[in-house]
Structure formats: C-alpha cells, structure tokens
Design a binder for these strands. Structure first.
Lengths: 227, 227
DNA sequence: ACCCGAACCTTACGGTGTAAGGCCGTTATA
DNA sequence: TATAACGGCCTTACACCGTAAGGTTCGGGT
C-alpha cells in the first residue's frame, strides 16, 4: 500500500465549501438532469459530477439508484399535488389532478417514464395517493368504483402520456413526423389517414376528449347510484 | 500481431453444427429470456449464450439492441393480431384485440414494457396498426374519432397493463400484497379501503369494466353519428 | 482454382451500478 | 482539553453492459 503524498482535497476548496447534499436536493438535481439530457443519461456518476461530488457520495442519501428515482417521482408529485387543493366539487379536483398529471408529460417529457413505471412506496407518494382516493370518496364513489375508475383514469393518463411523450420527442427529431416516413400510403391507407390527427397540435384535443368521455361516464354513474 | 496457435474452433463442434440464426429465432429467444428472467436481465451476451453464440454474432441480424426489442415487439403482436380476424362486428373485433393486448400483460408480464414503450416502426407492427385502424373505420368512425378513441383505448390498455404487471410482480414477492406494508391504515384510510379492490383477483373485473365503459361510449357515439 | 460474402469469433473501449473501505472535519463525551 | 464517534465524502475495484473494429472459417458461384 503506497503512502500518497497528502493531497489536501481533490475538491477545489472554495470559500463556500458547498453546503451538504440532501435527499431533496439530489432528487431535484436528478430531475433537472433528466429534463436536460434524458432519463437514460442519468447515471450516478454524471449526477454526482453535476453536484460537484463523486458518485458514491450519493449512496449516503439513497441506498440505490431505484430509490433515487423514487425521489424524482416525489418531485413530480410535488408539482401535481396542488391540483387537489381547493374546496370545489370533488370531480373538478379530480379533473384538475389528472390534467396536472398530463402536465408532467408536457413539462417533463423525459421524466414521465419515472411517473409511469415506479410504484408508489414513498411517504410522499402515498400521501398523494391518499388525497387522490379521498377525492373519489368525496365524489360519492364506494371503494369498488373508486378502484375501477381510478384504474380507468390513471391507466388512460399514463398510457396516453407515454404515447404523447413519444410524439413530442419525434417532433423535435430531424424529420418532423417520423411515422409518416415509415407508413406507405399505398399499403397503409388508414395509418396515413389517422396519423395527422395524432399530431402534437391535436394532442390537447385528444386528451381532453378522453377525460371528457371518462368523466361523463363517472357522472352518469353517480347519478344512477344516487337514484 | 501475435500468431495464435491455431485453435480449431471454440464452439464445441457437434454433429449438428446448429442451424444458423435468424431474426425471428433470435427475437423469440429474447422473448423467452425476458419471460424467464426479466427485461433487465436481457443482455446481448446472455442472449448469445442462450443461443450458443457470442454476443457480437447477434449484430449480424440486428443493428442494435433497440432493433432487437422491436423484433420482440413483433413477436408479441403475432400473438395479438389474430384477434382482429373474423368477419363479425368491427366493434367486437376491436374488443377482442384490446383484450388480447391485455393478454400480453398476463402472459408476458416482464415483456409488457416492450409493448408499452417501443413505437411502431417495423413492417410487422405497422401492418398490425393498419388492421387495427381499419377496424375503427369499419365500425364507422372517421379519422378524427378513430384517433380519439384509439388513444383512449390504447392509453387505457397500456397504462392499466403497466399497473397490472406491477401488481402481478408484487404478488409473487415475499409478502403477497406489498402496498399494504407501506400504507398505514391510520394515516391512509382510503388506500387501505381501496387496495383490496385492486388485488390481482379483481383485475379481470377492473379491466373489463374499463373496456365496457369505453365501448359503451363508442357505441353511443356511433348511434349519435348515424342519426 | 479463385474469390466472395455470410456467419461467427476475438478483442477492446468507455461506460454502468454499487460493494468495501479509507480519510477528515465536526461534534459529543469523558 | 483529550478522545472517541460519526457523518459525509472519496478511492478503488468488480462484474457487467452495448458495440466498434477487425479477424477467421467455410460453403458456393464463377
């Protein structure tokens, strides 16, 4: 074992020696990095470098990269949660909330996967989940119908969000609408016909049409149950 | 450049020297490996070993791992496609098709991610897409409503599929229903109430409720448009 | 007999997540 | 005040990844 010649500190010791890391700070930095460079570019080393720290330092705050992603999820929920505030009609709060979840697909397209894929295990995400389900209860749904409509709404929002994120990524690509490169009008007349209606400019319409349909069904169900 | 001592062939030269690989064969083997060990365990090296071949051999058939996953997607669509056969009512064919897509979540839970995440670019997947959209046209939807309902249905199926895959994975875990470990009945009464309704045993109900709701809305819309 | 190209192999590069352990300044304790 | 403990960060190392570059083998066409 060689005795190294007493290196003072590899970190450039500035006047402010950089305040210590924290779970929240790391997670927010990770979200920034994902937003800027994509989820697949998020590595512990790169994130560490971004924070002026070695990769392994992060493991003092998160036991694994998976838990770090849970932290990122928490950040995303922080942006979604306020939609559930207010004392207006529960269905309106729900509508705002699912709109806000779609907002994540728009404002953090490259991080949307985190929202779509990671299960709710943190304190933060469970609190959000609880508030969301409470709104269903406030609206008058029993547990079974809450489960059903929750899955219906959340499923749609997540699935449509994934598709939307893909579309928006294509939009920024070299050729604006890539699918049209692949689909041949001769052999794929229906695709050729429908794809223009799935353009980014129409996604607002498509998404609100989806939520309109679902909330209409919920309201009808509520009326039926109250009768 | 060193002259190596003439190794005959590192491959154990059996009587049958193993018939050459093919795109389809590799993709099917990849799907098997994903089913058996999980998507994150699929690596070119492991897949190669599974096929009695070095990793780089696969690059003669697929230019990248991403395209290999497209091949896996094609395999999954092969199982879904037959649902669109038949000359019965278009809405019934559509219903069968989306049920079949959920079947992927059940029969290939660990591969469902591939279906959910990869965009349709291959010949195979475009053919499927075309047939699916044709069924919408057959049912009487114009391009705009096809786009809307396609996104609604596909979004729900994908999103609910992701959630379902998660639930089924938990089911096999050490503690049967993991969410209940995290959720505290005191602080999370609604979660505690609703989670039992999201158990694996109820997923059939939840999924068909979702499709029932969506197809009811579609039928109503069709009646309105015909009037 | 020659060559060619397909199929496969070898090696190597720059990344990854993370286990194990060391160093150092702050803080608590004796 | 001396010492011990600890939190926070660093270093090293390991096994693995996708894949670029180029080499080997071999069947078949000319």
């Amino acid at each position: 074992m060689s005795i190294r010649p007493r290196v003072v500190s590899p970190r450039p010791d500035r006047k402010k020696p950089r305040e210590p890391l924290s779970r929240g700070g790391i997670a927010r930095a990770a979200l920034q990095l994902i937003d800027a460079e994509g989820l697949e570019q998020l590595s512990m080393r790169r994130l560490g470098a971004h924070l002026g720290v070695e990769a392994m330092a992060l493991y003092h705050h998160f036991p694994s990269k998976a838990e770090l992603l849970d932290g990122v999820l928490d950040c995303l929920l922080d942006e979604t949660d306020p939609a559930l505030d207010g004392d207006d009609a529960p269905l309106l709060r729900l509508r705002r909330c699912f709109d806000a979840l779609r907002g994540v697909a728009i404002h953090h397209p490259r991080a949307f996967w985190v929202l779509a894929s990671r299960r709710f295990r943190t304190e933060r995400s469970l609190a959000f989940y609880e508030r969301l389900l409470q709104a269903f209860a406030d609206a008058g749904f029993d547990a079974q119908h809450t489960a059903r409509y929750f899955r219906l709404l959340a499923g749609f929002v997540v699935g449509a969000g994934i598709a939307e994120v893909g579309s928006r990524a294509m939009q920024g690509a070299a050729t604006p609408i890539l699918l049209e490169r692949y689909a041949d009008p001769e052999r794929h007349p229906r695709i050729t016909e429908v794809v223009p209606h799935l353009r980014v400019a129409r996604l607002d319409d498509i998404f609100s049409f989806g939520l309109d349909t679902l909330f209409a069904a919920m309201e009808k169900d509520l009326r039926r149950m109250r009768r």
